[in-house]
Design a protein around this nucleic acid. Structure first.
Lengths: 160, 160
DNA sequence: CTTGATATGTTATACTATGACGCTTAACAA
DNA sequence: TTGTTAAGCGTCATAGTATAACATATCAAG
């Protein structure tokens, strides 16, 4: 169960690979990865961090890709709906998905200091919740699991 | 792992018992369960449903207990901070806690049709997440687990 | 070439949340 | 008593998040 985000890694690969995957996936599925949508995905990928919709909108505005809220929200809706990004409910913010294309129940570790987000996967939680849900007669359609705390870097910074 | 909310039960007991527990707990801990705070707790307890802050504010207004947003948010902050209520991040709304006083990692099952919320507990998820966090060097301070779907009642309603 | 589907541009507005300041009250020390 | 502090509340103003609704544009299919 690997999770990227808190550790050093070749970041430019993150961006290029994921955009390529998204490109391919969209073509196969008949979806349009338009310039705006692609750019929003890139912006999210540039950071392993949760970005607010208005923060994204600011960048779009700078690049003349749109200036009104719906522009950002539509692109984000598209990305979330198709599994290229996730919404962090705790923060009303968005992150790029690190496992696009694969069905997964994401688990997020969110640093309250630097907003860095690490995405991990959790099979166990899902099956466990499934059992509880079944007992209750509840049908689960979506699961949100978010852990908030301090990432390694910010712990070190605080300690010093 | 019991969970109330979707099933029939003696509801007036829910309210009275929980308010009593809160009363006692506050006295012991030197906290003030003021009229506003108590009333907000009661309002939340009247439904096993997520209520928005403004929905609560409306009721307070009707009863002349306050008319400005901060009044509701302060009371809610108090209740959440002291474990008498939870915030449902997915909905920007609040529910009364069904296990006040006990340390727990709540799991919520939220019906997307009627907003009913059932609170359950999950030891397993916690330890599992703890392991992942440890691997990453991440320190968890708070965990949000929310499952969205259809409650038994709304499934039946849809089917008919 | 027209129709329908999809995406985008734009205006306006709704919903959620908090900062800041002043007043009141209660507890306690001087 | 008076002064001081802390907590709660009343209120105004504003910040932050999100969407409804309608106009325009583009493109592929019929």
């Amino acid at each position: 169960m690997a999770a990227i985000g808190f550790t050093h890694h070749d970041h430019s690969c993150c961006i290029q690979n994921t955009v390529d995957v998204a490109d391919k996936h969209c073509k196969q599925a008949g979806l349009q990865l338009t310039p705006i949508r692609k750019r929003v995905l890139e912006i999210l990928l540039e950071e392993h961090r949760a970005l607010g919709a208005y923060e994204i909108l600011d960048r779009l505005r700078q690049e003349n890709l749109g200036s009104q809220p719906p522009v950002a929200y539509r692109a984000l809706d598209f990305l979330v709906k198709n599994g290229f990004a996730h919404k962090i409910e705790r923060m009303n913010a968005f992150v790029a998905c690190t496992q696009p294309g694969e069905v997964h129940t994401p688990v997020f570790m969110i640093c309250r200091e630097c907003d860095t987000v690490a995405e991990s996967a959790s099979e166990l939680s899902k099956s466990q919740l499934g059992r509880t849900a079944k007992d209750l007669g509840f049908t689960i359609e979506r699961i949100v699991i978010e852990a908030e705390g301090l990432c390694p870097n910010c712990q070190d910074a605080t300690a010093s």
